[in-house]
Structure formats: C-alpha cells, structure tokens
C-alpha cells in the first residue's frame, strides 16, 4: 500500500512539474518540485528513502529536459540523502525550519546540478545567470516547501509503520 502510494506520488510529482509548474513561473524560473518532495520524504522516512525517491523523480524529470539524463536524478538524490542524514541529528524542528530546508535544498541541489553539468559540458549552466537561477528557484522552493511537506506527510502517513520500503 505504501509503495503504491509512493509510486503514485512519484508520477504525480513528475506530471505536476512538467505540465503545471512550467505555467507558474517566477521571473521565468520553475521550482524543483521533485526535489522538495524527495527532501520531505528524506525528512520523514530517512535518507535512503529520500535518495531513492529523489533519483526516480529526477530521472522522470530528466526525460523532459535537454540536459543529460541522470543529472537532475543525481542532484535530487544527493540533496535528499544529505538532508535526511542531517535531519537524523535534529531532535525538534521549529515551524520556520521547513521553508529554510526548502531553500537550502534548492541551493545544494542547484549547485550539484551546475557542478556536474559543467563537467558534462552543459552550455546552459555557464555564467552568473545560472547562480541567479539557483537563487530564485531556491526562494520559490522555500515558498512551496511547507505545503509540500504537509501534503507528503498526509499522503504517506501510516500509523503502523513510518519506514518506507522500496
């Protein structure tokens, strides 16, 4: 049941990212919905779950991009894994923490995307504009994060088992 819900969440995330959020741009930029959902899962269910979800969400998104396949997958997976690992050391999370996590994961994910993209020879990640894009996207992620965290938490909530098995 949990796996089915996670797969449905994955499909919905990719569809929303490619068909809905590209109409909802802020200064020409779209948010990293897949990244925020992966981070939310890492936050609630541990770094492995977040990394696996981030990998598939990024891969699904990559099929619609011109950047190399696997680039978003790597950026999302590593960021979710990092957030999940760090979250393990935090006992209580205040309310303001969610937007901050959204913004920080946007920065980290964006920088991984730019760094690996530069090594892979992606033209679009050259120059200062790429960093401006990361900044704007991170702020957009921060705005979305509280809603996404809440939605993911409710959708995957299970009173018996809090660990997602893939």
């Amino acid at each position: 049941m949990r796996v089915r819900r996670t797969v449905l969440l994955l499909v919905a995330t990719v569809l929303l990212q490619v068909a809905v959020f590209n109409h909802l741009r802020v200064d020409g930029r779209v948010p990293d919905l897949g990244l925020i959902v992966a981070v939310a899962i890492a936050f609630d269910y541990g770094p492995e779950s977040g990394a696996v979800f981030g990998f598939f969400a990024g891969l699904g998104f990559d099929f619609f991009l011109e950047t190399p396949l696997g680039l978003s997958a790597l950026a999302y997976a590593l960021t979710a894994f990092g957030v999940g690992t760090l979250q393990g050391g935090v006992l209580r999370t205040p309310k303001w923490f969610t937007p901050v996590i959204g913004a920080l994961s946007g920065v980290v994910g964006g920088l991984i995307f730019i760094g690996v993209g530069l090594l892979a020879g992606v033209e679009g990640v050259h120059g200062n504009e790429a960093f401006v894009t990361v900044l704007i996207t991170s702020l957009y992620n921060a705005l979305l994060a509280p809603f996404v965290f809440m939605a993911v938490g409710r959708w995957l909530r299970d009173p018996h088992d809090r660990i997602t098995r893939f």
Partner: peptide, 26 residues
Amino acid sequence: NRRRFVLVLVILTSLTLITLDSRNGR
C-alpha cells in the same frame, strides 16, 4: 551499510546515465 549501499548505487547509476547520454545522445 545499507545507507552507504543506496548512496553508492544512486551515484553510480546517475553517473553512468549521464555518461551514456552525453556520449550517445537520446
């Protein structure tokens, strides 16, 4: 160990895909 295995698997798969895609295109 499981955590490390997942991390290494994800990184290696991603890098393989990036390399294949950069070399052969779609």
